[in-house]
Amino acid sequence: MRVLIAFLLGLAGSLAFGWWGFPQLLYQREPQPLQYNHKIHIEKGSMECSSCHEVAADGQFAGIPRTASCGACHAEPLGKTEAEKILVTSYVAPERELDWKVYSRQPMNVRFSHAVHVNKAAMKCEECHGGRGSATAAEPFYRNRVTGESRNVWGPRMIRVGLKPGEGMKMSDCESCHEQKGVSAGCLGCHR
């Protein structure tokens, strides 16, 4: 009996370490430079996703907009929030760029094309990014201390089951959607 208890305690300890402790050690939390609110821009600013995240005519994806484009509306604060005050005084006025952390950033050798998925395949942003585009605040960003990559590539849990859209984008996730849709990209279709 004593042996069994010791074993179970040991097991519980290692599981706790593996599933809770290890991720704490592995990932480093980094704040976003500003609490950006997507929802307010869609609702109050009546903006479309493409007014900030555009795919240009040559197929290049704009990514996250530069500060200059925020300045068009935020030369003076429109509201009373602290975040907006920081934006106007620390970034728009001195023309400084915001150092956004990109959750979905892939390793350097991966080639991902928004033009192919958004324009050609007419996919919705939510299919890969979940609710980020309608969130009221930017959630914390976690960086893997070993690889330097965003935690989003692996997903929030150690066991990769039941991932929702926007929670994981490993090679196997790209591939499993491609398999369902009958797409085949050679190695160098997704790599560079």
Binding site: R111, A115, R192
Partner: peptide
């Protein structure tokens, strides 16, 4: 590899017009 990056850019441009 025949400049794969340029092939990618050409594919991105084609994708805007609905082709891969």
């Amino acid at each position: 590899d025949f400049c794969q990056s340029r092939l990618h850019a050409a594919q991105d441009a084609a994708a805007v017009n609905g082709s891969l």
